[in-house]
Amino acid sequence: MISSDRLLGLVVAGFGCVLLVWLVPNFVSSHPGDPLDPSLFPRAAGWLITLLGILLFLFAGSGGSVPPRREVLVFGSFVVALLLAAFWLPKVGFLPVACSLMVASLLLLRERRPLWALLTLFAVPAFVWFLFEVLLQRSLS
């Protein structure tokens, strides 16, 4: 069975190739030979990523492992909750979004103790709002 590092090496090297073949030529203007060439560093990064990916494939160690599916699902749920919160923030304002995010957290964490749940649900958003909007005068919506 192929090790996770070996697979990662392939993915990284593949990304490096995509960078060199498609992304840099299409999204960075190039002036070869000019000392001010804007594509120098993106190309250098592309070559480094490709070569190091190949090295990782060849000399794969045992560091790192694929996270369990359950963990990835929970992580994905939190990311989706954050993306939804970011999407709704300009539309409904900070406090409703923050409270909804807290509800999602409590549900995902299966917190059943009412005192701690209430604290998370109301006190945390109120504290963050107070900190930024009132104390630091930074608008959150």
Binding site: L82, S105, F127
Partner: peptide, 13 residues
């Protein structure tokens, strides 16, 4: 359950 959501909201804000 209080600490991490609070940290998450601080990162968000």
């Amino acid at each position: 359950t209080v600490i991490y959501p609070a940290a998450m909201l601080l990162c968000f804000a």
